[in-house]
Design a protein around this nucleic acid. Sequence first.
RNA 1: GCAGGGAUGGCGGAGCUUGGUCAAACGUGCAAGGCUUAGGACCUUGUGCCUUAGGGCUGCGGGAGUUCAAAUCUCCCUCCCUGCACCA
Length: 949
Amino acid sequence: MINYPEMEKKWQKVWEDLKVYEADPDNRPALLVTAALPYVNMPQHIGHLRTYSTADLLARYMRAKGFNVLYPMAFHKTGTPILAIAKRITSRDEDLIKELKMYDVDDESISKMVDPLYIADYFATVMERGMRRAGYGIDWRRKFDTIQPMFSKLVEWQFFKLKEKRLLSQGTHPVGWCTNENNAVGQHDTKGDVQPEIDEETVIKFKDVDSDIYFACATLRPETIYGVTNIFVDPKARYVIANIEGERYYLSKNAASTLSYQKKISVESELIGDELLKKRALNPITGDALPVLPGFFVKDETGTGVVMSVPAHAPFDYAALERLKVERYSMPELNYKKVIEVKPGSEAKSGEEINREIPALGYLELLNADPNAPDDVLERATKALYKEESHRGIMIEGPYKGAREPEARKKIKLDMLREGKAFSIYALSNESPIYCRCGQKVIVKTIENQWFINYGDEAWKEKTRKLVGNMKFYPGKLKEDFGMLVDWIDLRATERAQGLGTRFPFNPDHIIESLSDSTMYMTFYTFDYILFANSVKPEQLKPAFFDYLFDYTNDIGKVSGDTGISEEAIKKCKESIDYWYTNTDRHSAPDLIPNHLTMYLFIHTALLPERFLPKQIVVNGFVNSEGVKMSKSFGNIVPLLQGAERYGADPLRFIEVTGADLDTDTNFSVEALNGVYSRNEFLYNTVMSLGGMQSGELKHIDYWLYSVLNRKIREVTALLDEMSLRNAYTGIYYNSVSELQWYLERGGNNALVMHDFLERIVLMLSIIMPHFSEELWHMLGKSTLVVKEQWPKVDDDMINPVEEESENVIRNTIYDVRQGMELSSKIDANRGRKVKEVKIIVAEPWKAEAYNILAEKKDIGAVMGDPAMGKIDKERLSKFLSQFAKRINALSRLNAISDEALMNGFADSKEFMEKKIGSGVKLEKEAESKSARAARALPNKPSIEIVWE
RNA sequence: GCAGGGAUGGCGGAGCUUGGUCAAACGUGCAAGGCUUAGGACCUUGUGCCUUAGGGCUGCGGGAGUUCAAAUCUCCCUCCCUGCACCA
C-alpha cells in the first residue's frame, strides 16, 4: 500500500533542496501565476485546496509546455476579522475556542490570541506549512503580508495616483450604526449575523394649511401621491415640531431622534398626536387640502410617524378608513382614487371576481379578508399588491401617465426632490429590527466626507470594458459576467475607522479598506525579494520608485537619488517586473468575482501601462463535503494539515480539481478517494511488474495501445488548453487505467510498450499528483525530476483509427454474441442445450463502400447509380441500403476496415473471444459463408450465428 | 426587490454554444457470479420498461410550440441556488 504522507514528504524535501520552484528571469517566455492570497483569520481546510491546486496545476502545465513560471504566495492581514477574533478571545468565546482546537491550536497559543498581530503571524505560519505540505510549486522567497510597512508603500502610491487621476471622490454614505458603541455595524456586528439592509425612502412635504409647518410623510411609493386622501398619525404618540435643515416639520419624537443621525435636526416643541387631528394638510402635487386622521397602524418608531394615506392602493390605509367609518368618526367624504392600473390577466389567479376599482379592497378579497383583518393579513395583501403593481402596473395619473410603475416612481420622486417638495432619508428595510451585539437597536447614520473610489467614472469603465474584451477567461462565460459587473460597479467606500492595514493618506485616522488595498499586490511579488535582499527600508520606497517601475518616469538617476536605493537594485526590480508582469494568470473562487476581481481589473487599467494589464482570469467552484457545503455549523470541516496526513495531498488535490468542471462545485468524498487509491495502486503495481516482462515484436494490441496513447495526448492537451480539467483527467487517468486493463486482458505483455505508455501517463499526471508521479517516474528508471520535464509530444504516425476501430468491433461483437446467446437460450427449442459454436461472418467489402457513399449523399438512388457499385447485384444492394433509409440523415462515415484486416484481427483474438464467449468461434467471410444469416453482416458489424448442439 | 445561474437514471454529474451517431460520458452506489477467505480489495456481468438472437417502447422539472427529428431551439409556468457594498 502506498504511504502518501511519507512519499510526499520525501519528494518535497528533494524539490526544496534543489530549489526547483525558485524562478528567475531567463530566456524562456514568462508566466506569473497568482491565486488570491489567503486571509489569515483561521487555518485553511481541505476545501481551500481547490483554488491553489488549480493554479498549481496550470503553473506546472505551462512550465511543462516551455514557459518559465513563477507561482508566489502572500498573506492577507488587513481588515477587521482578525480584530474580531482577538475580541472574542478576550471575552473567552467558547465556540471560537472550540473551533481553534479543532484546528489543533494549543491552549498557550490561544491565550496569546488577545493580540491581533500574534493571530496574524500564527495563522500565516500555519497556512504556509499547509501549502508546503500540499506540495505546491511556490517560490517562497517572495512571501510578504499586507500590513508589512514595505507593502504599505505600494498601497499608498496607489492612492496618491488614484487621487491624482481624480478617481477618488468624497460624499455622504449611509451605514448601519450603533448609538451605544458609536460604531458602524456590519453583518458580523449584529445579533444573529443579520446584514443591515438600507433602503432609501422619500419624505414628502404636506404643508399645514394654517402654518408654515410641513407634515413629513415617509413613503416607499411616492408615485401614489395622486391618490392621497388624507394624512394618518397616531393620536397617542408623542410628536414634535422640528427644524430640519431650515424648514419646520411635524414628525414623531422617535423619528426626530433617529433622523438626527442623518440630518441636522433641532426640536422646537413637543405635542401629542391627538393635537394634529384638527389640522389640514396640502398635497404638494395636487394642492388638495386633506384631513388628518387617526391611523390604527401608525407607529411612531417607523419612518416619520406621519403617513400619507392612499386607500385605493394600500390595504392598511383602506382598512383604517373603513374602520373609522364604522366608528362613525367625523370626517369628510373621501374619494378613493386609483392611480395605477394593472395589466389584465395577472392578478386574480383563481379567476375570482375581485374589486378592480379599489385594488386594496380587491387584494383583501383575494385573501378572503375584510378591513377588520389582522395586521399580518393586511401585510400579506400589501405585499401582493405592491409586487403585482411593480410588475405590471401602469400609471394612469399625472405627467407619467402610461409609464410602467417602477419608472414612474423613480421619475416622480426625482421631480419632487428637485422641486423641493420632498427629501430622502435612509431606513433599515429588514423585516424585523436589528440589534447590535451589545444589545442596542441598529439605526442608519450617514457618514459625511467619506472617501470613495469612483468606479462609476465612465471613461474608466470604458477602458476596463476594453480590457475585459482582450482578456482570456476560464470558464469563458466570465467574460460576459465581468462585462456586466464593469457596468454595474459604482462608488465604493475605501476607508474605514478600524482594522489592520495601511493608513489612508488623506485621513490618517482611517485605514484603507481591505479589498481596496489588495488590487495590485501581485506586482509586488516581482520585485519584493530584491528589495529584501538589498536591505531597502520602507521609507525609501517613495512614490518615485514606483513611478519608475510603472513607467511614469525613466530617470533612474533621479529615482536613485530621491530614494537612496542603488541604481543597480532599482534596475533589477525593473527588469524583473518587465519580465514577469507582462504575462499573468489569476486564480480565485467565485466569491471574489463581483468585488476583488472586478476592482483588480479597474485598478490595473487606471494605474498600470498597457503591457502590465491582466491577461487571464481563472475561477474555480467551491468544494462540498459528501454533497453538502463545508462549514463549521455542519461540523464537516477537515483542516488541511490533518487532511493531508489522513488522505494524502495528491489524492485530495486530484479529486478536488478534476472531480468537477471548473465552474461547478466539486465534491469531497471518501468514495471518490477510494477510487483514486485503488487506481493508483494498480498503476503502482503495474510499474512494479514491468521488470519481469519481456519486449518482443509488436502485436496488434500493442499498436492499439500506442494509438490510444497518442490520440489521448492530442485530445487531452487540447482539453487542458481550454482548462477543461475534468474531461482531460477522465482521459489521462480513468480511461488509461481501463485501457491498460483491457490491454493486459487481451494478452498484451510487451514491457517496452507499457513503459512508453506509463511514462507518458505519468508525465501528464505529474501536474496534478506531482508526488505520486515523481515516485512512479523514478520507478520507471528515470533519474531526472518529473516536475521539471516537458509535456509529452504526440506521435501522429502512431495514431491508427483503423486499429482502434477494429478493437471496437471485437469488443462489440463479443457483447452482441453474449446478448444473443442469452436471449436465444430462452427459446423452448434450446432449453437444456449448449452452444456448439458461434459463427462470425464478416461483411463483403462493398458494403462499407456503399454505406459511406450513402452517408455522404443521403440518397439511396444515388448510391445505386454510383459507378463504384456497378458490379454489385442490384437486388442485394437495394436490400442492404434500404435498412438505413429511416435514419438516413443521421448516418456518418465510418472508419472502414478492410475485410482482410478485420479477418486478421478476429483471427488474432480468436482465443480471447472464445474465452469471453465460452464456446468455439468460427470465422467466415460473407461471400463464402453458407449461413442463412450471412447477408445480415454489416460493415464493422459482422453477422453472428449461434449454433446449438 | 434587482441581477445572475440551475432543474438530466439510486446518487454526483456530462451532454445542451454547432438539434440527429443519447437509455444518456465519467465516477459512485446497488445486485449476481468469480476470486478468495477479508485488504479503502480486485475481475466479470447486470442495474428505466418490454423482448424466443444484436430489437422495441418510454424517458432528461411541468405545459405548449418549431422540425422529418429536441435533453438540446422558442414561449409560458413551478421550484431551487448565489451575489447585492464598507464585508473579507
